[in-house]
Simulated scan of single mutants.
Amino acid sequence: MSEQRPTRRDLMKPVQLLGFAFAAALFGGIIALVSMGFFQDLTEDQRAHVVVVALVVAGISFIATLVMIALLMLAVDPAQVTKQIDQPVLHPKDDDSRPSAH
């Protein structure tokens, strides 16, 4: 039985990356709403101000997350995008270089 390993292209799908950025923006917006007291007794003007600030925080979080993901994707060699991943990325290629425990 052959084992199907994902390629780097499978791991870096744009829809998943946009979903991650959207989730980060949603988290930031909800945290801004809660921390500014949106769910407490506020006037309508205060609620409008809180919503505007939360939308700004969510937008900044979305854009910052997309920029960071794009910069991290630039670190990947395009020739290795189609190669299969068969070991952890940050481990050394040969196992002999690791110190042995005695």
Rank of each mutant, 00 (worst) to 15 (best):
Q4L: 15
I30G: 08
M1R: 07
I31M: 07
E3T: 04
I63K: 00
A23V: 01
L74Y: 07
L18M: 03
K83T: 10
M36T: 06
H102Q: 03
L55Y: 07
I60E: 12
L26G: 09
L90C: 07
I30D: 06
D41G: 07
G19E: 13
Q87Y: 08
L90G: 07
A75H: 03
A32M: 05
I69V: 04
A24K: 00
L17K: 00
P99W: 03
F20K: 00
V15Q: 14
V53E: 11
F62Y: 11
M1H: 04
D41E: 14
M73E: 14
G28I: 06
G29R: 02
T7M: 09
D86I: 15
A79T: 07
K83W: 14
F39N: 05
V57C: 06
T7K: 02
A24I: 02
S35M: 11
V15C: 14
A101M: 10
L42D: 11
F22Q: 10
A21T: 00
I60A: 14
E3K: 09
A24Q: 04
V51Y: 10
Q87E: 14
G28L: 08
A48E: 13
M68F: 14
D41H: 10
Q46F: 08
T7Y: 05
L74A: 06
A54V: 03
V50M: 12
Q46L: 12
P14R: 01
P88A: 15
Q16S: 09
I60G: 02
R47F: 04
Q16A: 11
T7R: 01
V52W: 14
A54H: 07
D94C: 09
Q46K: 05
A48W: 06
K13R: 13
E44C: 00
A23E: 15
V51M: 10
D95Q: 10
D95S: 13
S97L: 09
F38V: 03
D41V: 11
A24L: 13
R9E: 15
G29H: 08
R9P: 00
R47V: 00
E3V: 11
L55V: 02
L74G: 06
A48K: 00
A24R: 07
M1V: 04
G19W: 13
M73K: 12
P6S: 09
K93A: 15
S2T: 04
S2G: 05
V76N: 13
T82H: 03
V51C: 02
M1W: 06
H91A: 15
S2L: 15
L33A: 08
L18H: 02
Q16G: 10
A70Q: 08
V67L: 14
A24P: 00
D45Y: 14
D41Q: 10
V67Q: 14
L66D: 02
K93L: 15
L17M: 12
S97I: 10
A79D: 11
S100I: 12
L11H: 02
P88V: 05
M73A: 05
S100M: 05
A32H: 01
Q84K: 14
A23N: 05
F38R: 01
R8Y: 13
F62M: 11
D77Q: 07
